[in-house]
Design a protein around this nucleic acid. Structure first.
Lengths: 328, 328
DNA sequence: CTGAAAGCGCTTACAG
DNA sequence: CTGAAAGCGCTTACAG
């Protein structure tokens, strides 16, 4: 059995009641400086630390946030993970990391989050069925969709301004060329891919610029293969807008391999501004997602809801910025 | 207050005792099929799920593994994170993700792990002072250093066969050239960087091949800048062995920018075999770290120690493989 | 401010 | 196999 020191042991050594020990370690409780010192000294001597589980049991709350991710292979998400962990740590929360291999979050993952009675949940690039999301609502566990938006407006989501971003990207390209423009989508059941497509196509159609869409999957390999397919079907297009950076990198590599000059023959634009976009091998023009701001929005909302649950829902959009490099 | 259903509620509805409810949900306890059905039906109806914290409190154990990471920006580690999460999930464990910005794990991170009474701890690329590691030992919490080895042999560690790997890399290069060979180290206080240097230098010295070492930091930017420095100090070396892939990619980009031909003028080898190493833009020759095997070793050890704590320590080495691509 | 006591939701000997 | 009861380590009204 693991050796364990509890509040009673400390109380005895310090010559106070167990309640006083508890008060010293519980934020917000009041004790005189004198008892505090006695307790702290005794705790130090015994190596006491409050049992987090007993605490959770009695307060019916935890300091754990569930973070659900799928595409950790895409460098955008490690960045997101890092920011969330750092930010929550500042507020005294820890992150329970849940990785789903499947697109849709599996039941066992939900079970885990519910069993641990997490204070809040963040869903990034995995999809979640509505009735599962409702389960969190029923348990009054605040939930945020990060970088994803649901069709129903019953849940809080934090995204980049995908629509206006993709419009601006289209306008940027339209101002320079009027040849065929291609959009390479990510997984089509994601709001990010659809919104970016929507804004892009809308502007091009209005301007009468020929436009074509290819469906891919948000991965490097997907971008690479899609670009090969595009080239195999005809001349290199005037511009390719990939729904995220990692696909755009695949596109660039495929174009190079086929001897297509970027940006002279084909311009390429991505989305996210991951670290690699600025590497000399790529110098990718892209739209920067303001991860820090997005994380702040998410954290603030969750902390607020943890403090007092309202179930308030909103689709928050944070402005990103266009980053022009040498692929355009 | 959050609505909460407990075992007593279920017992009442099912017409059994609270103990029976507990037995149904506690693996290993025995109940007749009949009571099981009654309980499950009642639980289903009420939406009951066992409170994990009450459980932890009484069993004095948890199903949480603490995973500590620093360089999540290096694509090697997301891969590691993914494998650990997947593997532990299979065994019913969840991962508490701890990210340290600093090289050395901070006290608050340790506090978190101890407060949550994690079942086990994995330290990847962060360093940990010995007395902190001892704190885990005192609490009988099994600890594994992953991809890092301590100088003292009191802790379990799982690494790739860095020494023989770097020897083989040196021999590979020595068989082809005898000009100046450069080693670019990562952070020098890491065992991985030191071991890779050691094996590499040892072989070259024995063969009388000129050898030089540059100190860097395991990042892309570090590799890039170091390569620039190398070129500014003289002719391009015959070969550069970077202590990890992400630095090697930086090296490749810097060499290209300066018009150095790879592999004709300079051969480049990395270590890890991250996804990007196989991208057409790089085609990097490298040493593949067998992440899956390393993770398995770690998980098995931890599960064993969780089952019965022995404090057994060993420096495990798993064999990786040489992956030859077009940078050599 | 402090202490004695109740109680959070479980698991687990102990009888039956 | 099942139930009544003790107890895990805390927090928190309630008196004093």
């Amino acid at each position: 059995m693991k050796p364990t020191v509890n509040a009673k042991d400390v109380a005895k050594l310090a010559g106070v009641s167990q309640s006083s020990v508890s008060r010293v370690f519980f934020d917000g409780a009041k004790v005189t400086e004198k008892t505090r010192q006695k307790v702290l000294a005794a705790a130090q001597e015994l190596g006491y630390r409050p049992n987090e589980y007993a605490r959770s049991l009695i307060t019916n709350s935890t300091k754990i946030i569930g973070l659900v991710m799928k595409g950790i292979q895409n460098p955008f998400y490690p960045q997101v993970l890092k920011q969330f962990t750092t930010s929550f740590k500042k507020h005294g929360y820890s992150v329970l990391f849940v990785h789903t291999n499947n697109d849709e979050i599996q039941n066992e993952d939900i079970e885990t989050l519910l069993n641990y009675n997490v204070a809040g949940v963040i869903i990034t690039d995995a999809t979640m069925s509505l009735n599962v999301a409702e389960a969190f609502k029923k348990n009054q566990i605040p939930l945020v969709f990060f970088n994803r938006k649901l069709t129903t407006s019953n849940f809080y989501s934090v995204c980049c301004n995908n629509l206006s971003a993709s419009r601006k990207i289209a306008e940027f390209l339209a101002a320079r060329d009027d040849g065929l423009m291609v959009y390479i989508s990510g997984n089509e059941d994601t709001s990010t891919s659809r919104e970016r497509e929507h804004g892009f196509a809308e502007v091009l159609e209005r301007r009468g610029i020929p436009y074509q869409k290819y469906t891919s999957d948000f991965t490097y390999e997907g971008g690479y293969k899609t670009a090969q397919q595009i080239l195999s079907e005809g001349d290199a297009p005037t511009a390719i807008f990939a729904a995220n950076d990692i696909m755009a990198l695949g596109v660039l590599d495929a174009l190079r391999k086929q001897g297509v000059n970027v940006p002279e023959q084909t311009k390429v634009i991505g989305f996210d501004n991951i670290d690699m976009a600025s590497w000399p091998a790529y110098e990718l023009t892209t739209w920067e997602q303001p991860i820090e701001k997005m994380v702040d929005e998410t954290v603030n909302y969750l902390l607020g809801e943890i403090d007092e649950y309202t179930g308030f829902a909103q689709a928050v959009e944070v402005d990103g910025t266009f980053v022009e490099r040498s692929t355009t």
